[in-house]
């Protein structure tokens, strides 16, 4: 089987400071990988390098493109990379307002990616938008409301709908449940899990919440000071952590 994403020795430096270094892994279709670590561990830097938002200083990120198979997204042309960004890739930001157009209606937000790839039939675009709002549990009568009138959880769900409408194969998520109430988080996690299975999505989820990765991620990568210190099956890493830092991380979680 060809990996969907093949990461080789990615490194990113901020001057002398390490953003992340020596990161390599393969992600296979349908796999969900979690990246955990504390603030400043380099997990967001890594995610941005993988998603093409930051240019890494070294390394390759091969993506299994529909047309040409594995292709290094670091060296591919910018139009090509941006095209991936609105078709096969999706990026869910921690803050919905970074990922949404706050001045545009919910329907317009969802429809944007469709229009970006050439949809020109208003009725069809709107029907698809309504369908996707329904899938993320936003009722049809909110389709013309702006996201600024939505709650935090709804905004996050809208962001997910907006990203998934073009049927991407790889979703990058940066703390998708950060800053949400626990009950809202649970609903979002449930939704994400269902969508991941229905659509056969692969996903890379950056979070510092171990409960989130236990529920969503098949595999886990633990980062500290820009380095990957441990990888493995999610439950194995959490239940039988090998690295001292992971042991500390796991034992530091408050029990409810």
């Amino acid at each position: 089987m060809t990996p969907l994403l093949q990461v080789k020795d990615i490194a990113k430096f901020y001057g002398n400071r390490i953003g992340c270094t020596d990161v390599s892994f393969d992600l296979y279709p349908g796999e969900v990988m979690g990246i955990v670590g504390e603030s400043g561990s380099g997990k967001s830097t890594l995610l941005n390098c993988l998603a093409g938002h930051l240019a890494p200083d070294a390394g390759q990120v091969f993506f299994d493109t529909r047309e040409a198979g594995l292709k290094d997204t670091v060296t591919m042309s910018e139009p090509e990379r941006r095209m991936l960004g609105r078709t096969d890739w999706a990026f869910v930001h921690q803050h919905a307002r970074d990922g949404l157009r706050m001045g545009v209606s919910a329907g317009g937000n969802v429809g944007e990616r469709l229009m970006a790839v050439g949809a020109r039939h208003y009725g069809d675009i709107r029907a698809q938008a309504v369908d996707w709002l329904d899938r993320v549990e936003i009722s049809e009568d909110r389709v013309d409301d702006r996201p600024s009138a939505f709650s935090g959880g709804m905004q996050q769900r809208l962001q997910i709908a907006r990203n998934l409408v073009t049927g991407p194969r790889l979703v990058f998520m940066d703390e998708p449940t950060g800053g949400l109430d626990v009950s809202v988080q649970a609903r979002l996690l449930d939704l994400l899990r269902g969508l991941v299975r229905q659509m056969g999505l692969s996903a890379i989820i950056v979070t510092h919440d171990l409960a989130v990765v236990r529920l969503l991620a098949d595999r886990l990568m633990v980062m500290k000071d820009g380095n990957v210190v441990e990888t493995g099956l999610t439950d194995q890493v959490l239940d039988d952590p090998q690295h001292g830092y992971t042991q500390l991380l796991v034992s530091s979680v408050l029990q409810v």
């Binding site: 493995g232 099956l233 439950d235 194995q236 239940d239 039988d240």
Partner: peptide, 9 residues
Amino acid sequence: MRMIYGNYL
């Protein structure tokens, strides 16, 4: 049991 399941290394 956990080792067989891959839960423990």
